[in-house]
Amino acid sequence: MDDDTVTPRELAERLRAGERLSVVDLRDRDEFETWHVDGPAVAATQVPESRFVQAEVTGGAADLVDGVPEPVVAVCGRGEASDYAAGLLREAGVDAVNLAGGMEAWARVLLAAPVPTDGPATVVQYQRPSSGCLGYLVHDGDRAAVVDPLRALADRYVADAAERGVEITYAVDTHVHADHVSGVRAVADETGAEPVLPEGATDRGLAFDATLVGDGDEVPVGDATLAAVHAPGHTSEMTAFRVDDAVLAGDSLFLDAVARPDLEATADPEAAAATLYETLHERLLALPDDALVAPGHYELDARPRTGDAYAATVGDLRESLPALAMDEAAFVDHVTGNLPAPPANHERIVAVNLGQEEAEDDVAFELELGPNNCAAG
């Protein structure tokens, strides 16, 4: 980082570390309210670009951020208007930098963190701070599997695997995602890896060739395995994967919430919520208290809970999540009564992920911009 600019990766690392800073967003109010840079110690505010233009003529740029704690990061769509605004703020004596590349570049950041296990597998968690999406690389020996990869960042997993000296032999999805475009086929095309999806994906209209796994099936990764655990509720085919003493939980159990049950078009939300209750209590919470849950998403204002990874033990989650202490009726009411807006373009994203519809890379990238919204409130 120089005195004028912060790169998206640098900003992401600072936010993950819990650094306090303010974000001043120059985009339109609706864009800001839908999606903005966030973090556990971020104060975000929206100031229209037009007010900075006016301030250049009349002075008083510092007044636009009066009461906003420093340091300040100025943000816009592509990093141009915010560069201009950050310059005005610095001239007015404010500690301000520009987010290089703006929100478009922010959406391409992918951080990595180790997830500790007690067995042979090395597990790496990939974090997309623009949306809270989490994916994983599991490797042992010279073999690897990538789980829940993002299409927009498919080349990152491939490059990371090459740097680690391992070959990606499987590209795995835990379910048919509704919040982002899957990278399973992109990784498979680039590496020759075998695409793997839960067997229930066929009932949802899967339209491309993939290896299908059911409950108890294993995907070998060197001397380690990904053991499939059918975990329906969020979707009917949702499948978690045990890796040593950890579980890649997908969109079933998060660190701060449980999954929403309404993103599968043919599902009845109340029935799906009841299924999720059964999944959580009979499958995931039945794991040992020290089993580590590594979810498919995290809240943008959350802090990592296992080193730099967003993961927590079953015992910790049982104690910290109120929804897990509810009886079934209260749980169903809670889950179905606290539903945020669905992810943007979720119906089209599902169609793309099933292979029923194609989307060019730039279109796919635009489809998924914004928060994931896969958890119940």
Rank of each mutant, 00 (worst) to 15 (best):
V184S: 09
V184N: 11
L150S: 09
V184H: 07
T169H: 12
E167C: 07
D142M: 10
V146D: 10
A159T: 14
A178W: 04
D160F: 00
G141R: 01
D155C: 12
S182Y: 04
A152E: 08
V158L: 02
T169D: 12
V181P: 11
D148T: 14
V176W: 03
D155N: 14
V181H: 03
H180D: 03
V146R: 05
Y157C: 01
D155E: 15
G165M: 00
V184C: 08
L150M: 11
V176F: 05
R185I: 13
D148I: 09
D140A: 10
S182R: 09
E167V: 14
L137R: 10
R151E: 06
V166G: 04
I168A: 11
D142W: 00
V146S: 09
A178I: 07
A159D: 13
V176L: 15
H177A: 12
L153A: 13
D173Y: 05
A152F: 00
P149W: 08
R143F: 01
D140T: 00
V158F: 07
E163M: 05
A171H: 06
D155T: 14
L137Q: 12
P149N: 04
D179M: 04
E167M: 09
V147F: 05
A154Q: 03
D148S: 15
V181M: 09
R151W: 02
V138Q: 07
L153H: 14
G135P: 02
L134W: 04
A145R: 01
Y157H: 07
E163G: 15
V166N: 07
Y136D: 00
Y136C: 03
L137Y: 07
A145L: 01
R164Q: 13
G183N: 07
A171S: 15
A178Q: 03
A159Y: 02
H175Y: 06
Y136S: 03
A162H: 11
D142E: 13
R156E: 14
Y136I: 05
D142I: 00
D173I: 09
A171W: 04
R185Y: 12
G135Q: 07
A145M: 11
Y136M: 00
G165C: 00
V187I: 11
Y170L: 03
V166T: 12
A154F: 00
H139K: 00
L137V: 06
V184K: 06
V187A: 02
P149A: 03
H177V: 01
H139M: 03
H180C: 12
V138N: 05
A144W: 02
L153N: 12
D140H: 11
D160C: 03
D140F: 00
H177N: 14
D142R: 14
G183I: 10
T169Q: 12
D140W: 04
R185S: 14
Y157R: 01
V181G: 08
G183K: 14
A154T: 02
A162T: 15
L137A: 05
T169Y: 01
Y170D: 14
I168E: 11
D142N: 06
H177Q: 08
V147E: 01
R185D: 12
R151N: 02
A186E: 13
A161H: 05
V166H: 03
A144H: 07
D160I: 00
A178K: 07
Y170V: 04
D142C: 05
R143W: 02
T169I: 06
A144T: 02
G165T: 04
A171K: 08
R185W: 13
V146P: 01
